[in-house]
Nucleic acid binder design. Structure first.
Lengths: 126, 126
DNA sequence: GGCTTGGATTGATGCCTGTCGATGCAACCT
DNA sequence: AGGTTGCATCGACAGGCATCAATCCAAGCC
């Protein structure tokens, strides 16, 4: 059948869409290594909560001073986790005067979501 | 809009849909811990490749004997990774005569995908 | 200038985890 | 029964990682 023909679509690899989708085709080592980095960044309860705190924020931005007290951890530890999330491309930040603000990067999240989706909802109308 | 109304649906917590979605609301510690376990399972290149090999298989099943030679790793190591994927609920297996066959569990993958999706595509018609 | 406060960085420490060789176990085959 | 093959388990080891106290830097304030 043409099943294998279809898959080739999504993997342009140029814009960051990356990777054909988990169900679509086996990953090569490079793709797997890159995606693993992202999932590893999500593989910690503290980072997940941090990310959800940031991503669910109405204004789209959160000051670190609002994040730290939400955890029973030291300030350096929170800072460390934020750094990992940022290095993974899941969030970004900016210093604005005294405070540092973080926000989520939806593109990375959606990319991972698309990768995991098994029922390829062919929403790619483009 | 009714955006926030829609999301509440999926979080029944009874069937495994779990968790309101990353962008929707902050996670509590239990939700974060449970999801982190899943993402941690995905946070390794070898496991990602294993999962993609299994999930993309036409028949839906793969014999371990087909998986092991695809890696430059010892057989116990592959077995170890398969065990972790299975404990995470991402795959399951069955011994059939001499060989053991693995298959993917799409429900878990779709659940994670739905959790990560930022643009809640309200596809939950059910 | 000094002081204070918000965050990031550093270094150290203990745990977790990926890997392997060796072994065990189950199923097939003489 | 004995031998062989496919996988899982065990024990050990090395590297990675989460955490903290101490420190440092930047920005505001006196």
């Amino acid at each position: 059948m043409s099943k294998q023909e279809l898959v080739v679509l999504g993997q342009s690899d140029e814009n960051g869409a990356c990777c054909p989708g988990l169900v679509t085709a086996p990953l090569d080592e490079d793709q797997a290594a890159e995606l693993a980095k992202l999932f590893k960044a999500l593989g910690d309860p503290v980072r997940l909560r941090l990310l959800s705190l940031i991503a669910s924020r109405a204004g789209g931005e959160v000051c670190v001073c609002d994040l730290t007290p939400a955890f029973d951890l030291s300030q350096p530890t929170i800072s460390h986790h934020l750094k990992l999330l940022r290095q993974a491309g899941l969030i970004d930040c900016e210093r604005r005067g005294t405070w540092v603000y973080y926000w989520a990067l939806p593109a990375t999240l959606d990319r991972l979501a698309a990768f995991l989706e098994t029922s390829q909802t062919a929403e790619a109308t483009a």
